[in-house]
Design a binder for these strands. Structure first.
Length: 250
DNA sequence: AGTACGTCCTGATCGC
DNA sequence: TGCGATCAGGACGTAC
């Protein structure tokens, strides 16, 4: 895709466009050339030769398909970005949770994001500083993108399970040893999911990819904990469904 | 300032 | 078996 230019865009669900206005978004895209495809946290970035950046957030259920413009599009395609080679970058989004931006300054847009958990800068010390002074449940803090960039609800549960830490523990009250365990668990959960996804990509029939991820902790009430055999519990933390093992996570 | 919660959406799943 | 009700969640706005 890098090197291709946009000839236009068909935005079928206007609410997805966050900034700027729909008109400016479409006008700003037309004729601009894609320079690269990048990622920051849960955002996909397409820097353009105009200096602006097309930013995509897939939400929970979003996906991208590159196909010829005359091919019939899937009914869940909410938008299509037309390329100058006759193809279209189609944006599937059944639940309409995805978001689009045309950012004049992408670095400004991501100024408040925390460290990338799979990069070297994400150390136990960095995590410890992020937790300090916060009295909210550790699970709620893990979902703050300013603390760790890119952790979602299921990954937070998985990380806390692997670390043996109860999701309702107050963030600032974790010991240094627990913080290190949590840091390592976050890295393990994410890199494990990436590895599973890469394996699954070899077989497109296994889509959607989220189904590929085999979580260590069962996301089912009463299911046996793989570590101790006890029943998995379900609670809500800040309105988010949360699964844990009350015996292993303290 | 720090914390909590409602809102948007619709496919999948649950319970009667 | 069928159908209506409920659940799921990322980021932002609003409220306390």
């Amino acid at each position: 895709m890098p090197g291709r230019a946009f000839t236009g865009a068909d935005i079928r669900w206007a609410k997805s466009v966050r900034k700027p206005s729909l008109e400016e978004f479409v006008l700003g895209l037309r004729g601009s050339r894609i320079q690269a495809v990048q990622r920051r946290a849960k955002y996909i970035l397409l820097p353009l030769d105009t200096g602006s950046t097309l930013v995509l957030h897939l939400g929970m259920t979003g996906g991208l398909i590159l196909q010829h413009q005359d091919q019939p599009s899937h009914p869940m395609v909410r938008h299509c970005f037309f390329l100058d080679d006759g193809r279209g970058l189609c944006f599937l989004d059944p639940r309409k949770f995805a978001k689009l931006w045309l950012a004049a300054d992408a670095s400004e847009m991501f100024r408040l994001l925390g460290p990338e958990p799979l990069e070297a800068g994400f150390t136990a010390e960095v995590l410890a500083r992020a937790l300090a002074g916060h009295h909210i449940p550790i699970k709620a803090l893990l979902l703050e993108q300013s603390v760790v960039a890119g952790l979602g609800n299921l990954y937070a549960d998985e990380s806390l399970y692997l670390a043996g830490i109860h999701p309702l523990r107050r963030a600032a009250e974790l010991s240094g040893e627990e913080t290190t365990r949590l840091r390592n668990a976050i890295v393990a959960a994410l890199s494990g999911a990436v590895a599973q996804y890469d394996l699954g990509r070899a077989d497109p029939s296994l889509e959607p990819p989220i189904k590929l991820i085999a979580w260590t902790i069962p996301r089912k009430l009463g299911a046996p904990c793989p570590r101790c055999g006890g029943p998995i519990a379900g609670i809500r933390v800040r309105g988010r469904s949360t699964y844990l093992c009350p015996r292993c996570q303290i």
